[in-house]
Design a protein around this nucleic acid. Structure first.
Lengths: 230, 230
DNA sequence: GTCTATAACCGGATAGAC
DNA sequence: GTCTATCCGGTTATAGAC
């Protein structure tokens, strides 16, 4: 495969090390000072490399953010693992997974807005809806696939198929709210999660009702049709 | 009132003219070249003023975008007026209003992404959820208040009260989709509108059912509670 | 006190040598 | 893989003109 070829970069062990060094420096500074106050020059200096070298590893300041996103995503996966193994109830899983997502992201709340800033721009290669980041997005959706997969809840097949994507979308909405949430300890976000998970659970039951079949079919057909933007 | 005092700026007639000149030049360039390729220097040059002068009238490049947003909002209001007067059916109104919104924005599709970019950033004074732009937001929601107000549909009072805000939120979602939509003539966006308006109409009926009262109450209480972020 | 202009600053990004 | 030098454009400082 040619695309795989392209992905495979010729990285030295030393290169990997330098790259990690730059990323860590960046994350420290971002946490301390936020996005705007963290200059590429400062990142390079803290990492002990030149500005040009920093750009050799990260195509732009936003790519650094994407790297950060990957990292927190992996942290989140690890954090969610125990619940995913112990708990099989959909509602309980969803509740835990979302709460853990927020607590994983919390150290970066100050500058997380930039994530959505770039995410909303269709021209940015970082936007999660764009083709470029399809792998990343799929990774992120996969968690919700697992979450839905081995749950015993009685959910019609058509809904079950689209549910992971819908839950991913929902979780993006929660993050957007969290970004704007300045309440103490993000109390409002946690309340939003608790309440919406409960509502969502009821809604899924409702949508699973045979009487709702025609409406559900139509809605899901639309979702499937529009899922992959382009 | 002190705040009113602050708002009142001492602008000359000539000043107003220069400001409009700059804005028009900006809009032309934005339409032609998109956001990134339109430099403040180019805008100033096209308007025949100095760079510093452009900044005298618009605090930043993003403020220019906000001015653009106001303008299209007003265009949209004018465009929607006939339907609002002739038509009283909620579904029909919603359909027309949304379609008109998209067609009003269409000339700016190329750079409209920037709108959501700033919208997503909680630190930006331009973000529509921030307190700063409460007047703008309220203006925008008002259209949906009017849309709901004198419609004869049988909708319970609690839902009717929150519906304008919910529809505004929904319309933001449509715009977000449109921004990412590169299909010919935005066919996908129009399809999304047609389909979701239909579904929404059904959903409102469903939510208006007395059997749904408890769930509806809970959901609406949550909406009201979280409506004003902060 | 409102306009307008010029010059400079700052930081993201790129070119090209080694 | 690493650096230095440079570009470019948003933004600011500041001073003169009306």
């Amino acid at each position: 495969m040619n695309s795989a070829e392209k992905t495979k970069s010729n990285t030295t062990a030393k290169g990997e090390q330098t790259k990690a060094l730059i990323l860590n420096s960046a994350l420290d500074l971002l946490r301390e000072r936020g996005y705007e106050e963290t200059t590429m020059r400062a990142i390079a200096k803290k990492a002990g490399v030149s500005l040009g070298n920093a750009y050799h590893y990260f195509g732009s300041k936003e790519h650094l953010i994407q790297a950060f996103y990957h990292r927190t995503h992996e942290e989140h996966l690890v954090a969610a693992l125990p619940v995913m193994q112990k708990e099989t109830n959909l509602k309980a899983r969803l509740l835990s997974v979302l709460r853990l997502k927020i607590s994983t992201l919390e150290p970066y709340h100050e500058f997380a807005g930039i994530l959505f800033k770039t995410a909303a721009d269709p021209h940015s290669p970082l936007n999660p809806f764009a083709d470029d980041s399809a792998p990343t997005r799929h990774d992120s959706i996969k968690l919700f696939e697992d979450l839905v997969a081995d749950t015993k809840a009685r959910i019609p097949g058509d809904l079950r198929a689209e549910l992971p994507y819908l839950l991913w979308l929902y979780h993006m909405g929660i993050i957007l709210f969290w970004i704007h949430d300045s309440s103490p300890k993000r109390a409002r976000t946690y309340r939003l999660i608790d309440q919406t998970v409960d509502l969502l659970d009821k809604l899924i039951s409702l949508a699973s009702n045979p009487l709702m079949r025609p409406v559900r079919k139509r809605a899901l057909k639309l979702v499937a049709e529009l899922r992959d933007l382009g």
